[in-house]
């Protein structure tokens, strides 16, 4: 992340022209202004320095240092042209930032006047204006990246592109028993897939929570693992979690919140509080559970996509 941003700054320095990062409204000091007037101007306009110019021609530069020097010497009545620094570096508005950036800063000039092709003063460049402009551009490029990410091919087009009376997209995920390192991986993939298919974020979240609880149940309770099947249609998502494990002994009891058969070590991990099925039921539009002792369990949950009801 950090590396990327540095490269982005470097790239901007190479591709950005002075014109884009300068402050365009230059406050100018006329050569005949007294240092007291200059001091007042700087205070009022909140600037730390300005070019001294006769019309469009830059004669020199004045900054806080020069004002302080004049003040110490008791020369506040003397005029700007007597106190200004005449070693001025003027840069072209068409120069690239990379050509001028080293002139600025601690070792160089505090500010650089900017002129156009005709030698007319059109702006001023300081480290401040550069940073401000770069930050602004980085923000824009970030927003562009985000926009591009969102506009990436939306898999939802499948429902328009494929011609049928009813198109359905079926995704299958294998969940291994007691594989805690990978538990939740299927849910994570399902969440991303639904986002890509263009399901509303509020619904995606409900599906993610429900399917994650279901996946954890497969991991914790089945002894053999199982399968999660996601059937996506235009108007609904139907998820089935199927296993051929030991089955549920007492369905009614299992549906009661707080009832759990999870072992201690599972509880230590923050699971097995007996809230899984209640959570699923709360998130889904419909939930159906079928189980036979020794014959496995099948959980069916349905989410309607045209509305945003529970949750």
């Amino acid at each position: 992340m950090v590396d990327q941003e540095i490269t982005k700054v470097q790239e901007l320095i190479y591709t950005t022209k002075v014109e884009a990062v300068m402050a365009p409204d230059v406050i100018v000091v006329s050569p005949s202004m007294s240092m007291t007037q200059v001091k007042e101007l700087m205070r009022k306009r909140r600037i730390a320095g300005a070019p001294v110019a006769d019309g469009d021609k830059v004669l020199g530069m004045l900054g806080t240092t020069e004002v302080m020097t004049a003040m110490e010497a008791g020369k506040m009545d003397s005029v700007a042209s007597e106190n200004m620094v005449t070693d001025v570096k003027i840069v072209s508005k068409d120069a690239y930032l990379v050509e001028v950036i080293n002139l600025l800063g601690r070792e160089g000039f505090p500010r650089l006047p900017v002129e156009d092709q005709d030698g007319k003063l059109v702006g001023i460049l300081t480290t401040g204006t550069v940073i401000k402009a770069l930050l602004h551009q980085m923000e824009i490029s970030y927003q562009q990246r985000e926009a591009e990410r969102l506009q990436r091919y939306r898999a939802s087009h499948i429902f328009q592109d494929i011609i049928s009376d009813d198109t359905s997209l079926v995704l299958r995920y294998i969940v291994d028993d007691k594989d805690f390192a990978n538990a939740g991986k299927a849910s994570s993939m399902i969440k991303k897939s639904l986002q890509r298919v263009g399901v509303l974020p509020s619904i995606v979240r409900r599906v993610a929570v429900a399917v994650y609880e279901a996946e954890m149940n497969l991991v914790i309770h089945t002894d053999v693992g199982g399968e999660i099947i996601v059937d996506i249609r235009r108007e609904r998502v139907h998820i089935s979690a199927v296993d051929h494990g030991p089955g549920i002994e007492d369905l009614e009891q299992v549906l009661r919140p707080g009832y759990s058969t999870a072992p201690e070590w599972i509880r230590d991990m923050g699971f097995g509080a007996g809230m899984g099925l209640s959570n699923i039921k709360r998130c889904a539009d419909t939930m159906k559970i079928l189980s036979t002792r020794g014959g496995g369990t099948r959980l069916d949950i349905i989410f309607l996509l045209n509305q945003d009801s529970p949750g």
């Binding site: 805690f180 538990a183 939740g184 991986k185 849910s187 994570s188 979240r205 993610a208 994650y212 923050g270």
Partner: peptide, 8 residues
């Protein structure tokens, strides 16, 4: 799992 849960 905390990260997974949070993600979901």
């Amino acid at each position: 799992q905390v990260v997974r849960t949070a993600e979901m």
